[in-house]
Amino acid sequence: MKQQTKKRTLSDLMGDSSSLLTVIGALLVEIVVFAILSPNFLTVINFKNIGLYAAIVGCVSCSVTLVNISGMIDISVGSQIAVVGMVAALVSGAGGNWVGTTAASLAVGVTLGAINGFFITVLKLNAFITTIATMQSFRGLAFLLSDGMSLTISDSAFKFIGRGYILGIPMSLIIMLVCYLVFHFISKYTVLGRNVYMIGGNPQASFLAGINVNSLRFKLYLINGLMCGVSGVLLASQTGAGIPNAAANYNMTALSAVILGGAALTGGKGTILGTFLGSMVLAVLQNGMNMMSVGAYWQDIIIGAVLILSISIDAIKGGSLKRKL
């Protein structure tokens, strides 16, 4: 009896501890390997660098985690980020200050999220198909906004958001950490967070229990749009430009981080801490390989292999080899 109580307490502390331990292990192995292979890897400046460049995908991965836990999906995030980046460049180019540019960008992000949410929750369209369609449309919109041209951003105050440092810490890293703390709090300690897990685990039962499933899903897409706005602002401010074909691979990177962190695409499972660790695993891996000048194609192969390996370890620990189906 005592032992059971102890187990429960540990489980409560760790959440999906099995997945978290796997991803923590992967992160430690990476750090040790790269520290041995690359003399400049284990430096403060490099870890700041990792945080700075991981922030763009890291921020949107927070909300993608909640969307996935709720049993839904959004593969249009890359296109949403591109649209937001273009809007930021347009507003900044029209003379908007950094506050106006950021506000307009976030508003556009929320609007794009609302469009996804409308089709998925009001018209009850399949989330995967809907976001494939909006991925296309939003990308087209990104091109349309500037007639296909890249737009440079010269406002140094706006560029500070992505490139600046506060007390030696990259601003974008601070923004990412704040986002993770907020999302961790929401998912763990609010009714909304608990309901997200419930509707992901069993939407029918949640509905019968009185949860407004559609309304909650709509809110999640709004939040996801907002986070696309944050990532879009970070991207535009880091590159100093609005680029219509930017962020093309961010959907997959964000989903990879979420899955590495232990979330199930079927819903009901996953943690914000797991996603944070997942995105760090990917960022450290990419950074280490870049520092060692590993070829781009090898990088793709290795990142895919790490993803498969992590999921396999998790699945085996969960008894997948013993199951007949």
Binding site: N40, I56, L235, A246, M291
Partner: peptide, 25 residues
């Protein structure tokens, strides 16, 4: 001499060149 594959993407070029700079202080 080093080749950096940036996949015709500004953000990728930025990140990989930043890592290169860090690796070669």
């Amino acid at each position: 001499t080093v080749e950096i594959e940036y996949q015709n993407d500004t953000a990728v070029a930025q990140q990989r060149f930043a890592d290169f700079l860090t690796a070669h202080p």
